[in-house]
Design a protein around this nucleic acid. Structure first.
Lengths: 155, 155
DNA sequence: GTAATTGCAAATTCTTTGCACGGTC
DNA sequence: GACCGTGCAAAGAATTTGCAATTAC
């Protein structure tokens, strides 16, 4: 675990861009680090931060998330549920990881490995498009739901 | 061009699900067909429909878009600009087409061919996830912007 | 010291809902 | 005549903004 080192690194990134590391920003970042597998919305982050630092305002959380997105420390994603969610970018990850969204239970799984290396090459060559990043989400049925379904049919 | 046949087919789909093809729904669908390369927001669709049928209300457009999404005639997409956009599903397309979003000029190009056939197989095998559909958007620089950039450097 | 940052409340933006009215089979 | 669909206006949800007070460096 290196929440410490991640925090330190972020602090530096903030300073490099002329931002200050305020307690509010630190608290927000900590929540993001502690929940890196989740895909929290601004409001969810706000409530989690509020638990430890009750004086924080929702607007500050929004403003912090905006800065962190700008610095590419987090990514803003949207899974068609109409609100923005925030996802910590993995240390040194060149590309955004992929998501598996279960249409049945709504769970979001993460796929760390980059499955698009070849596809991106095709896009660059065939469509003359210089790929910088991507957003890929598969919609489908997760293993757990598929098994549940199977069991129900057997019964 | 077969806006006629597309309309006819949709009419049937609506009827099969117990909906009527009202003039408002027809006008909305027509705008979608006429702008199938665009990625219009609800409001943009509303204004285009209003040109021809000034009596239509925004709420009706939203309600129509909801029905069309439900019937999988259109797809609701979001490109991180915070509002929903709607995209006509291609005739008989099993999978949602891909998008190329230019980070410079904001243009969205479409990629009709399915580049994910093999990747989906990997996901199914390696992650035990039954893929039903996907959302894939590449972020990068389009050909036009890349050339403009090059020209500026030469000058 | 001072420019950046904050919390709060008000404002905006996008979308949904309630409801009386109109159209259709 | 029951029912679906509509327009309008009001409500709602998510996010942004203005501003005076506060804080980090």
């Amino acid at each position: 675990m290196n929440a410490m080192s991640a925090m330190k690194k972020t602090k530096q990134q903030l300073h490099e861009s002329g931002f200050k590391l305020t307690p509010q920003r630190e608290a927000t970042l900590l929540v993001l680090l502690e929940n890196e597998k989740e895909h929290l919305s601004a409001e969810e982050i706000f409530f989690l931060v509020k638990k430890k630092s009750p004086e924080i305002g929702l607007a500050t959380v929004y403003r912090t998330l905006e800065i962190l997105t700008e610095l590419k420390i987090i990514d803003k994603v949207s899974f068609n549920d109409g609100l923005a969610r925030y996802d910590l970018r993995k240390e040194g990850a060149k590309h955004f990881h992929h998501h598996l969204l279960c249409l049945n239970c709504g769970t979001i799984e993460e796929v760390e490995e980059d499955l698009l290396v070849e596809v991106e090459q095709v896009v660059e060559e065939r469509y003359h498009f210089l790929v910088k990043d991507h957003r890929l989400t598969f919609h489908g049925i997760c293993q757990e739901c598929a098994e549940k379904e199977k069991r129900n049919k057997t019964v």
